[in-house]
Amino acid sequence: MKKLFFLFIAVAIIFPIIHFVFFSPFYDRAGEWLFLFNQGFKKISKENISSIKQPIVSPSDQFSRIVVNASVSKTSKIRLGISAEKTDNLREEEIFIAPKKEITWDFPQIDNSQNKTYLLQIDIPEESRNNIRFYFFSTDQQSSIIINDEQAHGLSLATHTESKFSTPLEKIQTLATRVKIYKPPLIQIIFFPLMGLYIVLFAVSAWHGLKIILSEEAVDKK
């Protein structure tokens, strides 16, 4: 009974907390594509694409990930790069992408990136071109996407940016600050005590639930 109880605590409380604090350090997902209304007009590239250049804006500091929506039919090689105005490539990497619905590129964080515009460049080697189809959506924003060295009007590449916390502590501090920004005063005060109480009540419920399910008295007629 005790072992089962601790298994419940480990699986349903400790693991999700550890995962939250240590294993999901990315924050501030941003990009026009994330607005669901844009996703209704998804367009898939039909022709072979050799290169895409698309400006992107990071809303936060420590910009460190780009996710591009694409259909990848088999493992392929591509080259990704980010450059800022009047600079050489800030980050550049050749990566192998597995068959998936998206291309995730993690790179060493760029500091002081808040609200800065960068140019994302994707180069697709000839041997990979048949394996990758990119998603685009119609946009009202003034489009400056360049596909195969030609300007494409009214289109935008389906992509979003993410930033990374330097430490788990920074993540907790950001969470605490943001609870205060957006919630009415009562919620600001009771949010974290409620989270603590959640753990206590879960433990007590699990203990009682296990006690009853393991008891021989209740009906087991099937």
Binding site: Y27, D28, R29, A30, G31, L34, F35, L36, F37, P59, S60, Q114, N115, H160, R178, I181, Y182
Partner: peptide, 12 residues
């Protein structure tokens, strides 16, 4: 309808 986070930087 957005699956992005609240736009914290702008909203302040």
């Amino acid at each position: 309808l957005s699956i992005s986070h609240l736009n914290f930087n702008r909203s302040i």
